[in-house]
Write a protein that binds this DNA or RNA. Structure first.
Lengths: 222, 222
DNA sequence: CATCGGAATGTACGTCGTACACTTGAATGT
DNA sequence: ACATTCAAGTGTACGACGTACATTCCGATG
């Protein structure tokens, strides 16, 4: 049974040693800059100025622990009101958009979050608020709606983030590029694909889907 | 600029050699049985009975190529009607559910699909049908709605699949287990989490969200 | 000033994808 | 029928990964 970082308090330091917070902060910077692929114990150690990755293990238990801490650290950036406002739809929308914009700053979040148990303190606090809003809105079982919402946000974010990586690594910047990769796309309705693309920002797509989902929620209250 | 497998036709074989189809089929079996983690050039080579992973490279170019071929091969399992039926909602629902159930048979699909460009022939055929249904339904820009739908399906599948892995690897099977991992969850509304869980199948959650989304679509036709 | 122990290091192992050189044996030309 | 060719499969090796384990270093304490 794997251990979780939440059971391992940071060891007390004697001098100006490394800090768990410093390790996590640096790891986040590394991942922000280079994506999940760049997040390596070695790169983080290098960025911290320590000479071997082994130094980090004292503070973060192992790489999964580091990831858990990173996930929870950026979770702290999503705004969680103290109590439901009474307008369930605004609360849900705000929560989702806040999560979405946090992920925009830390694209690696969407790729990592589903791979780890969601037991960090900030994560739990946000989940508690979400459930209470849903409960107050008469949407039950609340867990179902909560996971719908979260899955929608992280699923869309993941897809967008991967899309960006692909566009970049394959250098697809025009219709011609695309046709070079997929000649079959020239015919049929697929040709209209890119024609619609320009004014379709990721944010626009996200909010469209979010509002669709919330419409569906509205029709299922009781 | 990375090459794509679609530009590399299978090399002609002289005797009863390996086949691209055999490699892909075996790789799918490996991934079905052991998940993404088990999908290794070496494990596939072993399963095929060849002695080194290098033998596969003649047929699949590299691991990304193998993944592309696997993704497209299982894409062939989702039923794509020849033409829209006239009932856009039924068409969309059918397409989404068909994709969902395919992913149920090949859980690795959701984890890999967003990491590769979607240019396989079956994938393109399905996309073309999806776009034509959306176009006929007056949902435009069709690409936006198409990606919403696909992201919803794969996002939910990914989340469910990861959830299963977590449940298994952490052995969380009861409320007590959960509390052992996250003591804070005892208080607040979080306690109700597991209480609702029992009769919440993954399929149920999926269809609930799908219908919410489609409700939202319905309100946006023109 | 000696010693103790926590902090950081260095080395090493097994895994991954895959580059590259090599062997082997069936199909081909005469 | 035999020699030649070249594709199919093999073997070895490299750099990167996570991380186990033993070792060194150095500041705080007796």
């Amino acid at each position: 049974m794997p251990q979780l970082i939440w059971h391992h308090p940071e060891p007390p330091g004697r001098k100006n040693a490394l800090t768990r917070a410093a390790v996590v902060r640096t790891a986040i910077e590394v991942a922000d800059a280079g994506g999940v692929a760049a997040l390596t114990m070695r790169t983080v150690a290098d960025a911290l100025g320590v000479s071997t990755p082994m130094s980090l293990y004292r503070y973060v238990l192992n790489k999964d622990g580091l990831v858990d801490l990173m996930l929870d650290a950026v979770s702290a950036e999503v705004a969680v009101p103290a109590a439901p406002s009474g307008d369930w739809r605004a609360d849900l929308r705000g929560l989702a958009i806040s999560l979405w914009s946090m992920i925009g700053r830390h694209r690696w979040y969407a790729e990592l979050v589903d791979g780890r148990p969601p037991f960090g303190p900030h994560t739990l606090r946000r989940a508690a608020f979400l459930l209470s809003v849903l409960d107050g809105a008469g949407l039950s079982p609340a867990v179902a709606y909560a996971s719908l919402l979260d899955n929608y946000v992280t699923g869309t974010a993941m897809s967008v983030s991967r899309e960006l990586v692909l566009l970049e690594s394959f250098g697809i910047g025009s219709t011609e590029d695309l046709q070079a990769y997929a000649p079959e796309m020239a015919d049929d309705s697929l040709a209209t694909w890119l024609a619609d693309m320009p004014d379709l920002t990721a944010d626009g797509r996200f909010e469209l889907g979010l509002d669709c989902l919330l419409d569906g929620f509205a029709q299922r209250r009781r």
